[in-house]
């Protein structure tokens, strides 16, 4: 008898637990789908909405916006800190057209042609891919003043999509190799380069560095 009673109590406790869990999960789902109405940037949402994949991050760099803007505006500089970008060739013209060669798995590359779609000196650079690119992408970097002498807040946002819907997006994701991690690391390297003049490495010998390995693979 006693045993049965205990089992009975345990059973109702468990059932109540499951019910509570279900309610909480339901609340979690509905919150997740309403898109959030707080002040956090879209990038911080638990799940990116819509068809496109959006990646990005903000870092604070102890340098004036003008210096950071000038370095970024020269797209030829970007492969210095963007790990999977092998080369960017500037095509000239007023729209800042450029051809990107992006490293992909198995020794292949993704080619991208871009032009600058918005350019506000010392504040914002936006770009978008053109016809003939392997993937569709738009990117934006903004520079805003940080409080006191903390320098400049640099935010990078990259949205991309591949031709051909879901399958294409799958391909793009595979090709771009964890774009979110990549974007985060790239921004950190940009910060290192701007604040210290070099990119930190724990390599012991030159042959172990990223550059050496890139040349080897190339």
């Amino acid at each position: 008898m006693k045993n049965n009673r205990e089992i009975g109590i345990a059973g109702s406790v468990a059932a109540a637990g499951v019910a509570l869990g279900a309610v909480a999960f339901g609340a979690f789902l509905s919150r997740r789908h309403d898109g959030g109405n707080d002040d956090a940037p879209k990038i911080a949402r638990r799940k990116n909405q819509g068809e496109h994949t959006l990646v990005g991050r903000t870092v604070t760099i102890r340098k004036p916006a003008a210096e950071l803007y000038a370095y970024w505006r020269d797209f030829g500089n970007l492969p210095e800190f963007m790990e999977n970008v092998e080369q960017i060739t500037k095509q000239g013209g007023t729209k800042g057209r450029a051809n990107w060669t992006i490293k992909a798995p198995a020794g292949t590359t993704v080619d991208l042609k871009t032009e600058i779609t918005d350019d506000v000196e010392n504040e914002r650079i936006a770009w978008a891919s053109l016809e003939g690119s392997d993937i569709e992408t738009t990117g934006e970097v903004t520079f805003t003043e940080a409080p006191g002498d903390r320098g400049t807040r640099v935010s990078l946002r990259i949205e991309y999509d591949a031709r051909g819907g879901a399958i294409g997006r799958g391909i793009a994701k595979a090709f771009l190799r964890e774009p979110e991690v990549q974007a985060r690391h790239d921004l950190k390297r940009f910060k290192m380069l701007m604040e210290t003049g070099e990119i930190a490495t724990s390599a012991h010998r030159k042959s172990e560095t990223r550059k050496a390995k890139q040349q080897e693979n190339g």
């Binding site: 604070t60 903390r150 320098g151 604040e195 210290t196």
Partner: peptide, 19 residues
Amino acid sequence: GCFHCQIKQYSACENSNPA
């Protein structure tokens, strides 16, 4: 050169640990 080094919190340096 980073914020933490500038306020002498050297063991929180933002740039020495590789990305």
